[in-house]
Amino acid sequence: MIEPRHRQRAAASRGSPNGWLLGAPPAVFLLVFFLAPALLMVGASFQEPGEFGGLAPLLQDGRLNLSLESYRFFFGDRIYAEIFLRSFIVAAATTLICLMLAYPLALAIAQSAKRRRDLLVLLVILPFASNFLIRIYAWIVLLGPAGLLYTPGAVIAGMVYVHLPFMVLPLYANLEKHDPALLEAAQDLGAGRWTRFRRITLPLSLPGVWAGSALVFIPVLGMFAVPELLGGTRDMLIGNLIKEQFLDNRDWPLGASLSILLTVGVLLLAGLSAWSARPRRSVP
């Protein structure tokens, strides 16, 4: 039977007046204040710095003032490569420590009684609800009297603390879905606790590991407040470098090209992680 036209329309409209009228104001707002600035950033990375900071005029003496100068600058000076490398090392160390802390926690929650799981997950998220600066500040209070502040270790401790829930949640979401029958079968066949973990739980949890790692690794790269508050002058990371170009040196083209390079790096990593976590055919 063919449904009456007005019914089709009612179902399609989901109880609201004109869809495009509703969608237009938020779309226009975001085109102006999200998409335009993002595109502007790409453009700015090919412009030249202005005499007094900012950007040089796009048209000068009748020619288009575009260049690869900022990118050349980046690749021409070792210091930038070192900061990028250091940022990737800090991000990798943070991710690894988060993984080591989050795995046992996520596993313990996934193995606890069903009615308690929501509460245990909430307890992981709750500290995360406090202001980001307060969570960093807590480490100043904690490490200051011990004389451990302004070291690479303090930066990593702060990074781990700020990002830990991002690792716990995807891991838990994965571990919670494992079929306990698999472990029971392995036990009946004589596999010990360690073998069961290594041969069943761990391989099945790898998509969760990849998802969590991406959620930790990527934001660490853009973080400037943690190194600034907990680290020393030598602990500068990409985030600090970008912040410096925009606020202190006012070399916007360099800041923009650093941001573009960071974005490209992040997108490559996100793609890699999505590819690693892709659903695979599993043994039935």
């Binding site: 779309a27 085109l31 502007l40 853009g222 925009f246």
Partner: peptide, 28 residues
């Protein structure tokens, strides 16, 4: 395209959203 526009700022690293808005407000 609306979901992309709406979720873009949520997915974009905060630092990049901040500097791109700074650039836009001052330059444009």
């Amino acid at each position: 395209g609306l979901p992309l526009l709406v979720l873009g700022p949520v997915a974009m690293p905060e630092l990049l959203l901040g500097v791109s808005l700074l650039l836009f407000f001052r330059q444009v």
